[in-house]
Simulated assay, not measured.
Amino acid sequence: MDLVLSGYQEEKDENGDLQFAGNMAGLYGDLKGKQFSVTEFYGILGDELADKVLKWAEERGLVNHKMIDGEEYIEFL
């Protein structure tokens, strides 16, 4: 998923844990208006990165969760 990777830089802290250092506002601009199943979103980004992106968007009210045919989807507003 090029649009996500172009706005993301991976850094590790002193414990070797993943830190998110990308420009989230720029990344959000690429995601705005797009919809993903939660499974697809996590599959593309991996658990750590997907959690961080989703948390950032949720804290700002920039994501909508909905159920379609029994599957959860997220839409970036």
Rank of each mutant, 00 (worst) to 15 (best):
E11K: 02
K12H: 13
G26S: 15
I44G: 04
W56M: 08
G43P: 00
A21M: 11
V38F: 06
M1T: 09
D17T: 09
V4Y: 12
F41G: 00
T39S: 09
G61T: 12
Q35C: 07
L54N: 01
L54M: 06
L45C: 10
L45G: 07
L31Y: 03
D30Y: 02
G70V: 06
N64F: 15
E58H: 13
V4D: 05
T39A: 09
D51M: 05
I68G: 10
L77I: 13
L62E: 09
Q9C: 13
K34G: 01
W56L: 08
E48A: 05
L5N: 07
L18F: 12
G70F: 05
L5P: 08
G61F: 13
S6G: 14
E48Y: 10
D17A: 11
V53T: 08
M67Q: 10
R60H: 11
V38A: 02
E48W: 07
H65T: 13
E10L: 13
R60V: 12
G7Y: 00
A21P: 10
G22K: 03
F36E: 07
E71I: 12
D47Y: 03
D13P: 02
E72S: 05
A21L: 12
F36L: 10
G70P: 06
D47W: 03
Q9H: 09
Y73E: 02
D69I: 07
L62H: 08
V4M: 11
F76H: 00
S6D: 15
M24Q: 04
A21D: 14
K55S: 13
Y8C: 02
G33Q: 00
H65I: 15
G26H: 14
M1G: 06
E75R: 06
L18N: 08
D47Q: 04
L49Q: 08
Y73Q: 03
F20E: 03
Q9V: 10
D2A: 15
D51H: 08
A21N: 14
L27F: 07
R60K: 12
L3W: 09
L77F: 13
L77W: 11
V38T: 05
G7P: 01
